[in-house]
Simulated assay, not measured.
Amino acid sequence: MTATSRVVMLGATVTGIAALIRAELLLRRLKGFRGINSRYEKTATSYEAAVTLASFLLWARSV
């Protein structure tokens, strides 16, 4: 199911559509990090730290 088909089902606004697309793109980029995709970390805290670090690295590349 694509983002646009979900939007049609939800009847979302343009702002909601843009937020949905941005969230899906972020998740797709985060899955490029091997540890995030496979979830090597054993605890939720260390997994959250890895996601935060990966998000920061993605942001730093875009600046």
Rank of each mutant, 00 (worst) to 15 (best):
T15H: 06
G16S: 12
T43N: 01
L30G: 05
G32S: 09
L27I: 11
V8D: 01
L58R: 01
Y47I: 06
V63L: 12
K31C: 14
T52D: 02
A50F: 00
I21D: 07
R29D: 15
M1I: 12
S55W: 01
M1R: 00
L20K: 05
G16R: 07
K42G: 06
V63A: 09
N37W: 11
L30W: 08
R39L: 02
V7H: 03
R39S: 00
R34E: 15
E41T: 04
T13S: 15
A60W: 03
Y47L: 11
V7L: 13
L53C: 07
L10K: 03
G35I: 03
V51H: 01
M9E: 13
S46A: 10
N37T: 07
W59S: 06
G11M: 02
A60M: 04
K42F: 09
L57G: 00
V63T: 09
K31Y: 15
V51Y: 00
T15M: 04
T15Q: 10
L57H: 08
S55F: 04
S38Q: 14
M1K: 02
L53W: 04
R39E: 00
L58P: 04
T52P: 02
L26H: 12
G32R: 06
V8L: 08
L30P: 06
I21G: 02
R34Q: 12
T4L: 14
F56N: 05
T15F: 10
S55G: 07
L58A: 07
I17S: 14
I21R: 09
A49T: 02
R39V: 09
V8S: 03
L57S: 09
R22P: 03
A19V: 11
I21T: 13
V51E: 01
I21C: 10
W59A: 13
Y47N: 00
V63S: 08
V51T: 01
R39F: 03
G35C: 01
M9S: 12
L20T: 08
F33Y: 15
L26T: 15
T15R: 06
S62F: 07
A49E: 05
A19K: 12
V51F: 00
A54E: 01
A60K: 01
T45V: 13
L57M: 12
S5Y: 06
R61H: 04
M9F: 13
W59I: 09
L27A: 15
R28W: 14
A50D: 00
S5H: 06
L20N: 00
L20M: 15
L10I: 10
E41K: 01
R39A: 05
F56S: 10
V14C: 10
I21W: 06
G16E: 15
L10M: 11
W59N: 01
L26A: 14
R61F: 07
R34S: 14
S55M: 07
L58I: 14
R28H: 14
K31G: 11
A19N: 11
E48M: 08
A23C: 06
L58H: 03
